[in-house]
């Protein structure tokens, strides 16, 4: 049993404490925008925000999340898909297959929240999520665009 604050709402879930947050989100709460890619925190498809930080939910035991921790998933990033990162992603037509993009967007939005004008080196360091389709060039361009439009 755990109480989780997800996208501003409290959810009580019946689940073993060692269950990864990823699978609680997907299978208990029904939020499938957060994706399974590797299960070992290598690919970042499972990225969510916990108290504003990008975290890899596939290795985050749900028992380590406190009731007061604020979890934000891709579904809760913006009620109208109008976060500057989402708008920039649309403008640059970033996604190909799209499977990793929830994680990419969560990583990029966490970066932007901390660093209002990231350099290319900052982007290199923060954006370690894998995209097998190879959308990296557009991700970089879209982050720069989001910086310009969020003002």
């Amino acid at each position: 049993m755990a109480t989780l604050n997800i996208n501003g709402r409290n959810h009580d879930v019946q689940v073993e404490a060692q269950t990864p947050l990823l699978w609680v989100l997907r299978e208990q709460v029904g939020l499938t925008g957060t994706k399974y890619g590797c299960g070992v925190a290598q690919c970042g498809a499972c990225s969510v925000h916990i108290n504003g930080e990008a975290r890899r939910s596939c290795i985050t035991p749900v028992g380590s999340v406190k009731p007061a921790d604020r979890i934000v998933t891709i579904e809760g990033l913006s009620p109208t898909s109008s976060h500057p990162i989402q708008k920039a992603w649309l403008e640059h037509d970033v996604p190909q297959c799209g499977y990793c993009q929830s994680g990419q967007i969560m990583a990029a939005s966490a970066l932007l929240a901390k660093n209002g004008n990231p350099s290319d080196k900052d982007i290199d360091a923060a954006m370690t999520n894998i995209c097998r389709c190879g959308t990296y060039q557009r991700i970089r361009a879209a982050i720069h665009t989001a910086v310009r439009t969020k003002a």
Binding site: T32, G33, I74, E75, L77, S81, W89, P95
Partner: peptide, 21 residues
């Protein structure tokens, strides 16, 4: 022209096979 399938890939609403319920 812009892709026709981008919007649902930006907010978690696109359902992939792994997401089916």
């Amino acid at each position: 022209v812009k892709r026709l399938d981008t919007a649902p890939k930006l907010n978690g609403s696109k359902i992939y096979a792994i997401d089916l319920k």
